[in-house]
Nucleic acid binder design. Structure first.
Lengths: 157, 157
DNA sequence: AGCCAATTGATGACATGTCAACCAGATGGC
DNA sequence: GCCATCTGGTTGACATGTCATCAATTGGCT
């Protein structure tokens, strides 16, 4: 922390823009999702990830890793979703400790009902506002940052 | 929601990359901030916005608007920060209902101690990983989305 | 086989965020 | 000047997220 290298104007604008977009986009997507489908974004993410697996079911840890959630958070959230009948917990055949999370028919119905509207909202408020170049840039840049951040964990630092 | 126009591969990658970056970057910045300065990101944001005003003080609503927070959230958070001695609430001279939030010397010390490290982290994990073109693209694109989202509120829809 | 460290997932205590209800002070019409 | 209404901010109840801890298993090692 010798001499701070502050952000220049351009960098500052990009950083602030990012944070502002982040917040507003989140609010709007969450609002529409709740209004149109009765789901929160976390609900949607869980259902979405589950529905993408071949068997509609995943080990809790596997799901948590994909979502970048702590097991604790996921466990808590699942008990809530379970009470609403969206998912179930099953025993794991190969590991006595394990919990296998499965989509219920109701959960499947919920995600199928929610998805088109949600995708449309993502388009309306983000994707369709960008040029192809910008989408490509976003793809490249975000993945570079992600790679860096996941690399950091392994590195000794 | 007639026929959903799904995201194509490129769009999908950009969208997922964005969400992943969002999450990882947040975790890492929050982690370093807590470790190095004993502040949460919300703490930092409040202190930062306050410290940027000429007088180190702002009306609660004004602050809430800048931060895109609800008044309620800000009020709750301020009582916590107040208990830690980082900010104070003062009466407003021109409006008997009003609350003016001011940085304490301690709050000022906290933000000044935290800022260099935080900026460095933002550089290390984001800004310095991007090309100038990408930073410019990020600036342009985020502001376009922000403008769209803030315009939406006014529009009848 | 038997032991022990590591892993899985659940749980309780607590921090944080949201929502609706509320109160006091401001405002505007009459 | 008075009342209805609006606005700024606070509050309490509740939803959600984090953290530390715990019990049950597992798996490596001898």
């Amino acid at each position: 922390m010798e001499q701070p290298r502050w952000l220049d104007d351009q960098e500052q604008r990009a950083w602030r823009g990012y944070r502002r977009m982040r917040r507003l986009l989140d609010l709007e997507l969450a609002r529409e999702l709740a209004r149109d489908a009765g789901l929160s974004e976390p609900d949607y993410d869980v259902l979405s990830d589950l529905s993408e697996t071949p068997d509609q079911r995943l080990r809790l840890s596997e799901l948590a890793d994909r979502m970048l959630w702590s097991r604790s958070r996921l466990s808590h959230h699942l008990t809530r979703m379970q009470q609403r009948g969206l998912v179930t917990r099953e025993e794991c055949a190969t590991d006595g400790r394990g919990a296998v999370i499965a989509l219920t028919p109701e959960g499947r119905r919920a995600i199928e009902a929610a998805a088109p509207g949600h995708v449309a909202a993502v388009r309306r408020h983000l994707i369709d506002l960008l040029t192809p170049d910008e989408i490509a840039a976003l793809d490249a840049l975000t993945h570079r940052v992600v790679d860096h951040l996941t690399g950091v964990d392994r590195a000794p630092r």
